[in-house]
């Protein structure tokens, strides 16, 4: 066991972890932040995507020990300070960018990382950026649309219903 300390969603936290404790296990089990999901074991589905020092990372493919001293943001930290949905979260609701909700936390975190790097992405850029996030419900249509809408682009021309 070794002690790790990090900032999670703006709050300083610490805990004792084993070497093989994954960051996602620390978040879900020790901190009870169960919004970060585990959908695969080969680092492909992206349901566990979080931000580490402002950059997206897969919490299932990183040890908690590697996050010692890091600034972590999870989906629980994405809403506005008053608890209302952030622009990205609101766009996902407005455009029906989620169904079962399981991949959604990862999608929100990846979308946030994308818009930080590229504030007005094209459709192709959004699709490419989602390469590491698998959704089985939506066929991606409304996810791509929601992310483009969250970037302030007019999505009314994209087939709706």
């Amino acid at each position: 066991m070794s002690k790790v300390s990090m900032t999670v969603n703006g709050k300083a936290v610490s805990g004792d972890v084993k070497g093989n404790t994954l960051l996602v296990e620390f978040l879900r089990e020790d901190l009870r932040l169960t919004g970060t999901h585990v959908g695969c074991d080969t680092s492909q589905c992206g349901a566990c995507t979080i931000h580490v020092n402002g950059k997206s990372a897969k919490a299932c493919t990183m040890f908690a020990a590697e996050a010692d001293g890091a600034d972590i943001t999870t989906v629980e930290g994405m809403a506005n300070a008053d608890g209302s949905l952030s622009v990205i979260q609101q766009a996902f609701q407005d455009h029906h960018g989620l169904q079962c909700g399981f991949c959604t936390p990862g999608m929100v975190m990846t979308a946030a990382a994308l818009l930080k790097e590229n504030p007005k992405p094209t459709e192709a850029e959004v699709r490419h950026y989602l390469e590491g996030n698998i959704c089985r419900c939506t066929g991606y249509h409304n996810i791509v649309k929601a992310i483009m809408a969250a970037s302030g682009q007019d999505v009314s021309a994209i087939a709706a219903e």
Binding site: S43, T49, K55, S56, A57, M62, G132
Partner: peptide, 9 residues
């Protein structure tokens, strides 16, 4: 390579 999150690590 991989995807954005993989490329960050």
């Amino acid at each position: 390579i991989g995807d954005p999150a993989v490329r960050n690590r």
